[in-house]
Design a protein around this nucleic acid. Sequence first.
DNA 1: CTCAAAGTTGAGGGTATACTCAAATTACGG
DNA 2: CCGTAATTTGAGTATACCCTCAACTTTGAG
Lengths: 184, 184
Amino acid sequence: MARYQAGIRTEARIVDATRSLLAEGGLEATTLKAICEEAGVKAGSFYNLFDSKEAVVMRVVRESIDAVDPDPDGAGTDTVDDLVAAFIRFFLEQPEMAKVYVIAAVTAEATDNGARRRFLRHHLRRVERFADAMARHDETLTPDAATMRAEILLGALDGLAFRWTIDSSFEFEKFALEAASRLS
Amino acid sequence: MARYQAGIRTEARIVDATRSLLAEGGLEATTLKAICEEAGVKAGSFYNLFDSKEAVVMRVVRESIDAVDPDPDGAGTDTVDDLVAAFIRFFLEQPEMAKVYVIAAVTAEATDNGARRRFLRHHLRRVERFADAMARHDETLTPDAATMRAEILLGALDGLAFRWTIDSSFEFEKFALEAASRLS
DNA sequence: CTCAAAGTTGAGGGTATACTCAAATTACGG
DNA sequence: CCGTAATTTGAGTATACCCTCAACTTTGAG
């Protein structure tokens, strides 16, 4: 038998609650208790719909990243500038979410539940997107050279974003754009 | 009355135990219980010598970073290459410690106990070291331009190191050196 | 309607954490 | 030695967390 509408609505409320808590107070504020209270649901209901707290957190983070994708359909029409702008937008518009992403990625290494591999896959896809855009713009670029440039540019963007998380007065956008112009 | 030798030795044992645990299993393995067991000390003794678990962890991380400084006395003789090499060395030789540094820096933002400011101060000092070394090498560089270059280079190094923490097969050193040559 | 499956409840299990403190013990200058 | 202050003990406190489960209610297709 198919799912009931009630369950689907509850799931949506839990996801919304998680997103709201993550955006406002980061991972620290996003306890199971808080999620359930915000969603108006008891713990048992949560575990009827999700395997773990981590599952819903990862889902929200993933959705947030996808939401700023300049080319969600993978049509191959995005430029490096588009991609850099999307990256900057993610960090400026959703700083707490970005921090959760960083923390989750770093700590995922300890727990071998496949989270690390997911992060890596996501990163590699992003590298590929950047490299493709670079190759489209400069046809003399070999694939390997494009990949290297993409890794370094993404590294710089990640590092500057990290820099900004520990000092919100850092002019992240300015430095990120400068880094992009030097590295693409 | 002055400190007893016993207390000084106990403090050293606790620091050693913490360093060993951090290096082997990261923050996750470094619980108060584990520290006390490894050091052969009860919890009460620990709190007679340290204000908190965080205090000893931060001390060990700081000492580890200082241990690879190419110019500990600040004589102003270090080159950009020296600084980059020291950075790479810290991550390659003490990967768990590096991860602890990253996690602590990211999560420090939530807790306002001054940890964030310490990280920022440390970063700014490093930026200054890089910028000075750049300015010494190229005297036409204005201080502002040198600072910007230093921030971007350090951002790239941080980002590539982060990249490496989620995939140990990533050729961190190769990419870091390439980034340094493109950005300095 | 019926009734099986989907969804919900909510108290509490299990576990881990950092940290405290009054009392006992030890170090060591005088 | 003596006495004081440094050190150590270790059982506990306080707390927070994620998650479970058996009983109950609601849904909606046939």
